[in-house]
Design a protein around this nucleic acid. Sequence first.
RNA 1: GGCCUUAUCGUCUAACGGUUAGGACAUCGGCUUUUCAAGCCGGUAAUCCGGGUUCGAUUCCCGGUAGGGUCACCA
Length: 482
Amino acid sequence: MENQTQKVVTRFAPSPTGFIHIGNVRTAIYAWAYAKKNNGTFILRIEDTDKAREVEGSIEHIIKSLKWLNINWNEGPDIGGPNAPYKQSERLESYQKYAKILIEKGYAYADPYTEEEVDVFRNKAIEEKRPFLYRDHRPENPPIWNVGKSNMQSLRFKVKNIKSYEWTDLVRGKLSAGPEALDDFILIKSDGYPTYNFAHIIDDLEMGVTHVMRGDEFISSTPKFLSIYEALDIKRPEYATLPPIMGSDGKKKLGKRDGAKDFLEYEKEGYLPEAMLNFLAFIGWSPKGEKEILTSDEFIDLFDIKQIHISGGKYNEEKLDWINKEHIKLLKEEDLEKYVFAWLPIELQNKKIIPIITERISKFGDIKTMVGNGELDFFYKEPVYEKDKLIYKDTDKNKTITNLKEVLEILEKTEESQFNKDNIKIFLMELADKSENRGQILHPVRFALSGLDKSPDPFILADILGKKETINRINKAISALN
RNA sequence: GGCCUUAUCGUCUAACGGUUAGGACAUCGGCUUUUCAAGCCGGUAAUCCGGGUUCGAUUCCCGGUAGGGUCACCA
């Protein structure tokens, strides 16, 4: 079985420093989709090496976010797997093992300076307006690395070949970085935890990761990664650099500090997870063809690294709302009912009003606004209105009363079993067409039933309210006018 | 500032070097059950600038401009 294609292994490796946002999740879904599409493995790994920034509850938040989207992983901190543990803080022996190999090979040394002392070097360089590179201060006789001691030094990588790097990225093609990008960076901090630069390489190696999807902020640190791969003489995974997502003002890359919201906010606002997935998929990727509304399976099926964009795009909530609306239309009746009812007070939880709601919202949270504005009150209580509003344009009071009485006559004649919007429409339109203008018939009926300037049409209103209540409200309107 | 990187309608994007530069969102107009919404039909709207290569450039090359990223004991 020579030349067998390697099994695809991808990972999503967030750090637990608070909530995750759209940018993070997009990276996750691409890695997930690529693994799924290739019958590969998708790993969730927690990069918790910065203990100072760690935020309690972040891991649960990450897991909850991904689960809401129906993204599942084959290996992860919650479910374990052949390469456990999946939290970097629990993998310190691995990092030390490879750190020692680097020391033996002469590629790493203990840093005799404290963080503050290095800062002095750095500030001096900045003052003198020249670039700061630690390697200009590389100690001649570094101490033995006292790993595990209370006064432990940090361990630095020793750059032996100061050179430009060029590499190939699955999305961007040829990428490069100058020799300035390469410095004696920290492998293991003085608190014993590795830096990202080092840890992710060891983890990817041990977990057999074949494809790394990541943001473009890593382009300039890639020479660091490549120099570790060279020093350790190991093969790197393929890189797929994703385009940045800009905030809606277009000024800055979307990030936690720049207004990106907690991903779970979208759940709270009543967006559909499948719509979120669809939306996210299209920020930075588009399939061949012009289909824009995709289910999760369709996305996986169509996903191709070749179609990932190279230039960034803005976050566009209007488009999200449209996509969400389209996905609401795809919902099965019982699911739609479940979602809508979750946002409705008990007195409004009725199948009949679902269509008039779903036509008017883009996300379920909008229902809250509709309810708050009293747009649905007509359903369970008689409307209160100024009687003059019943009169259409330049028709007068008496004419309106006459019209309403004619309407009443027709409705009363209609059998209960025939009392539905289609029939009502036929009957009322017939009457309306006989009058000088349709509005003088249709408007007072609609208004008598809803009491609202803006409401669904009179036919659906009558249908929803039923024969008895419709007749009742029209009678009330007639007496109000008298 | 150094290094890296990007550039098509307002926005997201499509276009083997040859297209009336296509689609979607938004917007505007019309139609339908003279409100609202939905739906249908239609309109406005783009290749950043300057050079080159080529019979021909949105597409390839160079320069400029503008945007983004990065220069941590953060990831």
